[in-house]
Structure formats: C-alpha cells, structure tokens
Computed example of a mutant assay.
Amino acid sequence: MQTHHPIRNDDPRVIRMDRGNYTTCTIILKGAAVTSWMIEGAEQIFLSRISKLDDYSKYRGGISLIFPHYESWIYGRNHGFARDLMWSLQSGPITDKNGDVHLTLFLTSNCFTKSSWNYDFEMHYSLILKSSELETKLIIVNPSPSITFEFQFGQHWYVKVKDVTKVFFQGLKGLTYIDKMNVNPNIPFLVRTNDVLTFTDDNKESIDQVYFDTPDELNIISEEENKIIKITKANMPDLNIWVPGKKIPKINDLDLDECAYFVVTDFGQIYHTKVLPPMSRFVTTQTIEVIKIRTPPPKHGHFLDYFEDIC
C-alpha cells in the first residue's frame, strides 16, 4: 500500500487540478511531474512511498518528461534535464464549460541547460483533466533563426496496477522490438508476432523492451481491477516497457515489495533522435482514458476474450 507524501496543497510549487467528484490531478513544478491522478478517489499513478518530493531529491514514480536525451547521458543524469528543472506556470488551472480543467506549463533554455546542451529551446506542456481521461500536449520549439538541433523526448509513466502478474499490453502484433535484457549483437532486432504481452510470476528478471512504430492506439488491461487503460497518441512512435523482476537489486528510492504494483511505460521518440529545423516546432499529444468494466469477467476462458467486442 502507498502512503501519503509530505506535500502540501498550499505549497506554491504544487498545482492541483480539481474537477469535482474526487477527480483530481496534482503536478509539481519541479520537472512538471504529475504525481497523482485520481478518478472518483481511485489513484491511477504509482509513486513510491519513500520518494521525497523536494527540490533536490529524485523520486520514483509519477509521469515525468524525458528531454533532450533518453537513458544514460554523459552530460547529466538519465533522461535529460527537463524533469530536474523548475517549470513556470503559463496558464490555469482553468475550468471550461464542460467542467474539464486546463493547465499549461512552460520551460525555456537558460545558462544551466546550455552548459550541457548548447541550444535555445522552448517547451509548452498542456494538461486537460476530464472525468475519466488525462490529455497531455507537448510543444517543443526551436526559436533559433539558423541552428538545427536533434533531441529525444518521452513521457516516463509509472502505471499503478493492483497486480503486475495480471496485466496485459494489447496492440503489439507484428511490431519490431529489441530486448535490452537479452542483447544478441548478431540479432539486435526481433519481430513480435503476438498481440499481447503479459507478465507472470515466471518473470524472475526485469523486462526491458523497446517497441518501434507502435500504433496510435494501445490498451493496457488490468485483469485484477477489471479495467482498460486506453492510450491514444500522436508523434510518439516508440514504447519502452520496463517491469522490475524478483531478482532486481535494491533500488534506493523503491521498496522491494512495491515492484508488484507498477509497470513503467515510456512513450515518445526515445530510440532515434528527432531533428527540429530553425524557427519550427514539434507537437505531440497523448490521451490516457481509464475504462472501468463494471461487470466481472467470466471465470472460465481467456480473460482477453471478455474485451474482444469492447476494444
């Protein structure tokens, strides 16, 4: 079970979007990180109970942004600097006529970012909280009149689940992927023919796989919760799935018993770089919709058959 974190609603670094009916979203300005998303009181995002949400510590969980580099980087820590910096509030939170709550955050280059990545840039990150959906839009701008830059980006999302051994990824049929846990230099790319990726008690080691050219719609199905998480995205072709196994070494900011309650997904341009010409911008969007199945699934047959006429 997760515990409450020492974070106050009156902290100016914390922004709370409230749609009513116990449907809320909490964002901290450090890294523009989503640390909580609740639908009718039910938490949808994993955050380690031992994470410290302060200005200096890194945390394990939430939805954070990857930019301008994915994974290890000689100029800084993993996944770049966007999730380490303090963002500015550009607009919101504002509630529209439908009751949806809108928020936009802003980050631009400065002396610190140029010390490791010497380019001018702007980032505009918009969120819309709906009754059962969280919409995000990321705009990356190259304001330079003459200089082109390359970058990687993504959303580093800890999906909270009740039991990781009863989670299915649907929509992977025919995709090319690499398995970072079993790298064969002679066969670096494999082709997946199954539509569904599952995690079982037999997964003793971590699962760390990158899928390429993923479809614009994917489903994450949590059997234990009778729930579908539908992801609709644009300009986010790559997907990295990471699940810690039972043999994983101790991680300083994660209790070992917490490994059963999350799946990490990175959607974005994470394996190849994106080229952004001068005076241009790049726009990417993602909608996460939680579909709760009120009727329990049948006790016999394959669980995914229950969703065949729904998805």
Score class of each variant (00 low, 15 high):
70 Y>V: 05
188 P>T: 14
22 Y>C: 08
229 I>E: 02
87 W>D: 01
41 G>A: 02
215 P>T: 07
310 I>T: 06
90 Q>Y: 14
299 K>P: 03
108 T>S: 09
52 K>I: 09
19 R>T: 10
231 I>V: 13
92 G>C: 09
73 W>D: 13
233 K>W: 06
126 S>P: 02
117 W>G: 12
52 K>C: 02
251 I>Q: 14
191 V>D: 11
75 Y>K: 14
247 K>H: 14
228 I>V: 10
36 S>W: 02
284 T>L: 10
29 L>V: 09
286 Q>A: 03
11 D>G: 09
36 S>E: 14
82 A>V: 07
306 Y>V: 06
26 T>K: 06
18 D>S: 08
214 T>M: 15
41 G>C: 01
52 K>M: 04
74 I>Q: 15
64 S>P: 01
64 S>K: 09
120 D>S: 15
292 K>S: 15
125 Y>P: 00
235 N>L: 04
269 Q>W: 04
236 M>C: 08
69 H>C: 02
135 E>W: 04
157 W>H: 11
167 V>H: 02
81 F>T: 08
296 P>C: 01
85 L>R: 14
72 S>W: 12
111 C>H: 15
3 T>C: 05
218 L>P: 01
138 L>H: 05
116 S>T: 14
74 I>M: 06
75 Y>R: 12
60 R>Y: 14
278 P>V: 06
250 K>A: 15
160 K>Y: 08
83 R>S: 05
307 F>M: 09
167 V>S: 00
53 L>W: 07
116 S>Q: 10
294 R>N: 12
248 I>P: 00
255 D>N: 14
202 D>C: 08
86 M>N: 07
76 G>K: 01
3 T>I: 14
211 Y>N: 10
75 Y>D: 06
34 V>C: 15
60 R>P: 01
13 R>P: 00
211 Y>R: 03
196 V>K: 05
42 A>V: 13
250 K>C: 11
185 P>D: 05
259 C>S: 11
41 G>I: 02
22 Y>S: 11
63 I>P: 01
278 P>Y: 06
14 V>A: 04
38 M>Q: 13
69 H>I: 12
295 T>P: 03
94 I>L: 13
93 P>C: 08
75 Y>V: 00
167 V>P: 05
14 V>N: 08
146 S>Y: 13
268 G>V: 03
90 Q>P: 02
45 I>R: 03
217 E>L: 10
91 S>P: 04
202 D>P: 00
301 G>R: 13
242 W>V: 03
243 V>K: 10
48 S>L: 05
207 I>L: 04
105 L>G: 07
207 I>Q: 08
148 T>L: 13
123 M>Q: 06
230 K>V: 09
255 D>Q: 14
101 V>L: 04
293 I>W: 03
21 N>C: 11
184 N>H: 10
279 M>D: 11
290 V>G: 00
106 F>G: 13
171 G>K: 03
79 H>P: 00
42 A>Y: 09
184 N>V: 13
194 N>L: 15
12 P>D: 06
230 K>H: 08
109 S>T: 10
90 Q>W: 11
210 V>E: 11
52 K>P: 00
124 H>Q: 15
238 D>G: 02
223 E>P: 00
220 I>M: 13
62 G>R: 04
181 M>G: 11
268 G>K: 02
127 L>V: 01
190 L>H: 12
85 L>Y: 06
285 T>V: 09
306 Y>H: 12
